[in-house]
């Protein structure tokens, strides 16, 4: 299975889905013009990955900001990861937030509450 790499733009996040190493990353902003058009290929890729996932998948969300339409799409991504986890393939999600951004921290807590998936909240280390 081929990796999916989408470079970031000023309104869409960088996405790296690497099936060889089981490392997934979403970083940047998400206020796409067409959120369904942007996220659908990601859902399709994850559905294929779910058929033969690695025993351990690391997922990193390091988002700057996103709108509510994107937050729903992120929930859909997490639900797919939850299904992989429920099928016995470990998935570890880390949700990064800026220490000054309590809204981003709360969003991570919302996902923790809605899903049966290990989501670790972690303060970003300033570079």
């Amino acid at each position: 299975m081929e990796a999916l790499r989408i470079e970031s733009t000023h309104k869409t996040p960088r996405v790296i889905l690497d099936p060889e190493n089981g490392i997934f990353e979403f970083s940047g902003r998400s206020i796409p013009e067409d959120s369904v058009g942007f996220y659908t290929p990601i859902f399709e890729w994850l559905d294929k990955y779910a058929q033969q996932p690695l025993p351990l998948t690391h997922v990193r969300f390091d988002l700057e900001y996103f709108n509510t339409s994107s937050s729903k799409n992120i929930l859909e991504i997490l639900k797919r990861l939850e299904a992989i986890h429920a099928a016995g393939h470990e998935v570890r999600v880390t949700w990064y937030y800026d220490e000054d951004d309590e809204d981003m921290e709360e969003t991570g807590q919302d996902y923790q509450a809605l899903l049966n998936l290990p989501i670790e909240l972690s303060v970003k280390v300033q570079s």
Binding site: S35, V36, S69, K72, N73, L75, E76, L114
Partner: peptide, 9 residues
């Protein structure tokens, strides 16, 4: 959030 359809909020 749980209820909404991403294609149609």
């Amino acid at each position: 959030l749980e209820k909404d359809d991403p294609r149609n909020l």
